[in-house]
């Protein structure tokens, strides 16, 4: 019995690795998860969850247009991602409508434009893979692009990690000591758009926001140190990706949904049992037995 379950676990992990597409999917999704997880710490602390949702939905028409014109999809996505935020800022400034309303109406507008474009262009664009992701069917050119963008985002975040932390924590102080807050704002926005672009391949446009906020929120419950938060966020994102892909392989489930569901479960676990901030504070529980 013991041996039998061991073999099952062994094959559970190793069997999928015999497939080329699975190895690729596991590697690429882990990379994407790491990038999104890293950024996630900043977005959670800055309170940009809604902004993440907005940008990730707004890239849709960009992706479609880029595909139709034969350009790298990341370029189109990036332009529309940053464009949506600029538009949100503009409408907010020039009207009396509240910010969350503006965000909601701009991104749904962009998203709708994307869907209409897909139906009109009807080329070889696979709406399903844009909406729900297709980590198992990622092409070689997509792999190259994903690696390039991921590295770019990670390098930017590493160089400016302290400035971005300060920007999230106390932008006024940043400005007072001569740090370019405008630049940091757009840097974070750029990273957000780029991360959304690579993230949507794993889990699709609809769920990519989860990649950008859930790992950060999980980590926030588990630590009081910023550096630890980043590490936990990245690790939980990678682990969720691996779990999601394996589960979807064995049980024939939608991969993107499985990845995000794994993240949600890890968050719930932290929510319930985090040592300091969980509902059942584990530290206290154990202290009772000592």
């Amino acid at each position: 019995m013991e041996l039998c379950s061991f073999l099952t676990l062994d094959s559970f992990i190793k069997d999928p690795l015999t497939h080329d597409f699975m190895r690729k999917a596991l590697l690429m999704s882990s990379l994407v998860a790491a990038v999104c997880g890293f950024l996630s710490s900043y977005l959670t602390l800055k309170g940009w969850a809604l902004m993440g949702d907005a940008v990730s939905h707004s890239v849709m028409p960009g992706v479609v247009v880029a595909y139709a014109l034969g350009l790298p999809f990341s370029l189109g996505a990036f332009i529309f991602g940053v464009g949506s935020v600029a538009l949100i800022g503009f409408i907010k400034q020039k009207s009396r409508v509240k910010e969350d309303t503006v965000i909601g109406l701009v991104f749904t507008g962009f998203f709708a434009l994307g869907i209409v474009l897909v139906s009109k262009i009807k080329s070889n664009i696979d709406l399903h893979s844009i909406l729900f992701g297709s980590p198992l069917g990622i092409s070689l050119s997509d792999v190259k692009q994903t690696i390039f963008i991921s590295l770019l985002v990670v390098i930017l975040l590493l160089i400016f990690r302290k400035d971005l932390m300060l920007y999230c924590f106390d932008p006024r102080h940043a400005k007072t000591v001569g740090i370019n807050v405008f630049f940091l704002h757009y840097l974070l926005l750029t990273c957000l758009s780029l991360a959304a672009v690579v993230g949507l391949q794993s889990v699709g446009i609809i769920l990519v926001v989860a990649m950008l906020i859930t790992p950060g929120a999980t980590a926030y419950l588990l630590t009081d140190k910023f550096d630890n938060m980043t590490v936990i966020s990245v690790l939980s994102a990678i682990i969720s990706s691996l779990i999601g892909i394996y589960v979807s392989f064995w049980f024939d489930l939608e991969t993107g949904g499985s990845i995000v569901l794994a993240q949600t479960f890890i968050f719930l676990f932290a929510f319930l049992f985090a040592p300091r901030y969980g509902i059942f504070k584990l530290k206290k529980l154990f202290a009772g037995y000592k």
């Binding site: 602390l45 302290k162 924590f169 938060m229």
Partner: peptide, 30 residues
């Protein structure tokens, strides 16, 4: 670095995962 601003307690996110040392070090960032 001529001007230093000390914010109101309400003006900062007290739940931000950052230590005393890190906050004070931010005074040197500029």
């Amino acid at each position: 670095q001529t001007i230093a601003y000390v914010p109101q307690n309400e003006g900062i996110d007290s739940q931000f995962p950052i230590s005393v040392w890190e906050v004070v070090m931010m005074g040197r960032y500029g």
